[in-house]
Nucleic acid binder design. Structure first.
Length: 568
RNA sequence: GGGCCCGUAGCCUAGCCUGGAUAGGGCACCGGACUUCUAAUCCCAACAAACAAAGAGAAGAAAUCCGGUGGUCGCGGGUUCAAAUCCCGCCGGGUCCGCCA
């Protein structure tokens, strides 16, 4: 295992400075391998010159182990590494294989909810960001040693679904123009539900009689009419079936699908209402029942966070409380992936659970900003959507074209490349940043994109394929290590730290950025450092470097949910 | 109107939580890199042929590499030895403040 370079430096510093030094006082540097600005802080405390303090500290540190040299420069303490000592740990990158970068098991179980798309139509590109972040986080957190369980909440009793169910029941014809626009997907169940939704919703808005029948059905469903409930939830199940096809294609899996209707069937929604009715925050108005959370800084326009309509049927928030009470029993920590439009509701939910229920378990959230489209206003209700189905089809087709043009890879890697490009494009941006979705950019295979990273991996594989040396006969030598080799070694050694910080900050883009940098360093190495034509000692060392790069790239891509083909 | 998020070259983005050396990448643009092939031109030569060199085009190595151009870190103030980073005020974009989910 690689020694934690930062930790080693921290120890040396602490001993020499006779002051507590945190791991964050150790950083990268433009002029050295590692540096620390710790002398500035000490200088301030003691009223001395930082330059002198740095020199004093540097003088007191005797380089040992992986540290080759320590120098004070302009008040910084600079460390230089003995890269030869980092070669042996590289063999463990290869021997740990798919586990390189995986951290020690922690005794904590995380219940991660993500995606949870309304079952009223196909998955559109905006929502894709939720699934990709969620799936990647599940992988990253598992790699961080947590036990992770992923949950998909299916909102199968909402008003939207009730509208669609009523539409099907009354035989409302789907909207012709919408069907025509998405005709290549007309046999997918999620699209069929979507077509029906557009038509029924029109009716819902224009025909009060229809709207009344919908609301009556919701009431019946919620008050024990199993048949009415089934009619509604069946529509949701149908839609979910189509959505699942897409998640299979994307290799995004869920441990559990939780149906909102369950909480009505088993009366948990009722118990939530009964419990909250007794709380000191409850208020009743002519509109229904709600909580007054203004003392927590949460005030809606009407003043209350509504729990039930005037006819007694529950609203989303109430069912969400029931759902979260259940999830809290399943793990030690909850994390939800939610769009930034849900920030307010999430705060309400969190406040109610913490303040009214007195729940202590951490309830975390990852918010992400919207993906918008130039000149395109999306509205499922009006029949305008940007289904991922289309995006995937186009990406795969583009990958096929590139393959044909270059004639160097087999066509069956096209889905891996096309889907990888989409995933990487969305994951490389930090979650809170808005994305203006640009079709060309998303499908770009050059520069900071997954095909570049995948290609570096394929190049590693290609060199290893041509090599005849068995990995266990490797002869290591640190003779004439080049700068390119050194940088590559250092980057590979940092992978576990990267995994840790991506897990701590819940940011997959940290992995994405790292992978591009690693691939970029490898590409330079590939150009500058011939491997197979070298003398035995250097060749073996470089083979090891290639093999550990390959493994690190593969593991990193895995954390983003992207496959690494051996050839392309 | 109030809350939260975002603002970094023409475009996209990392860094911000935890202040530290010259703000790190990508796209686009300009230039450079090895090999092979192609045909016309210029120079040298009395002429011809051969060879060499320079330039042009195409293909491959190469889904590559190197260099360059491009920055008021939205604006203004403050804190600090030091601010993209922290604090305050403004501007622009997003989002929320529904008996919708």
């Amino acid at each position: 295992m690689f020694p934690s370079i930062k930790e080693e430096v921290r120890n040396l510093l602490e001993k020499a400075a006779k002051e507590p030094v945190s791991i964050d006082d150790v950083a990268g540097s433009p002029v050295a391998d590692i540096c620390s600005p710790i002398s500035f802080r000490i200088a301030k405390k003691k009223g001395k010159d930082p330059v002198l303090i740095a020199e004093e500290i540097a003088k007191r540190i005797k380089p040992t182990g992986i540290i080759k040299e320590v120098k004070a420069e302009k008040g910084y303490i600079n460390f230089f590494l003995d890269y030869g000592k980092l070669l042996t740990p590289l063999t463990e990158v290869v021997s740990r294989g798919a586990d390189y970068g995986r951290l020690k098991r922690r005794d904590e179980k995380i219940v991660l909810e993500h995606t949870s798309i309304n079952p009223s139509g196909p998955v559109h590109i905006g929502r894709l960001r939720n699934s990709l972040i969620g799936d990647s986080l599940a992988r990253i957190l598992r790699f961080n040693g947590y036990e992770v369980e992923t949950h998909y909440y299916v909102n199968d009793v909402g008003k939207q679904i009730a509208i669609i169910a009523q539409g099907f029941k009354e035989g409302i014809k789907p909207d012709e123009s919408v069907v025509k626009e998405y005709k290549e997907y007309k046999d997918k169940p999620d699209f069929q539900v979507f077509f029906e939704y557009v038509a029924s919703n029109k009716l819902f808005e224009s025909d009060p009689g229809f709207a009344e029948r919908v609301q009556k059905n919701i009431w019946l469903a919620e008050n024990g009419d199993r048949e009415a409930l089934k009619e509604i939830t069946d529509v949701a199940k149908k839609c979910l079936k189509g959505q699942k096809e897409i998640f299979d294609k994307l290799d995004i899996g869920f441990d559990f699908f939780d149906f909102e209707s369950e909480y009505i069937r088993n009366n948990e929604v009722k118990s939530v209402l009964d419990f909250l009715k007794k709380s000191e925050y409850v208020r009743k108005t002519e509109n229904g029942l709600g909580l007054d959370l203004s003392c927590f800084g949460l005030e809606r326009r009407g003043g209350l966070s509504m729990l039930a309509r005037s006819d007694g049927t529950s609203v989303y928030l109430t069912r969400d409380i029931a759902y979260h009470l259940r999830k809290i029993e399943l793990g030690d920590r909850l994390i939800n992936v939610l769009g930034e439009d849900h920030k307010f509701e999430f705060r309400e939910l969190k406040t109610i659970l913490a303040e009214v229920y007195g729940i202590k378990k951490p309830l975390g959230v990852v918010h992400y900003s919207f993906v918008s489209f130039e000149g395109l206003e999306l509205s499922t209700r009006k029949g305008q959507t940007a289904p991922i189905d289309k995006l995937i089809d186009e990406a795969v087709e583009k990958a096929e074209n590139e393959i044909t043009k270059r004639d160097i890879a087999s066509k069956n890697v096209a889905p891996v490349i096309g889907i990888g490009a989409i995933k990487y494009h969305i994951l490389k941006t930090s979650p809170l940043k808005q994305i203006l979705f640009d079709w060309d950019e998303a499908l770009s295979f050059e520069g900071e994109a997954s095909p570049y990273v995948q290609y570096a991996h394929a190049r590693c594989c290609s060199i290893l394929r041509k090599s005849k040396t068995a990995p266990d006969q490797i002869n290591l030598s640190d003779d004439s290590l080049t700068k390119d080799e050194e940088q590559l070694i250092l980057k590979i050694a940092k992978f576990p730290e990267i995994v840790e910080s991506a897990g701590r900050e819940l940011k997959p883009n940290i992995i994405a950025t790292y992978l591009f940098e690693l691939a970029s360093l490898f590409s330079r190495f590939y150009k500058e450092c011939p491997v197979l034509s070298e003398m035995e000692k250097i060749r073996d060392r470089r083979l090891l470097l290639v093999d550990s790069t390959r493994q690190t790239l593969k593991n990193g891509l895995y954390l983003l949910g992207i496959d690494a083909p051996d050839r392309m």
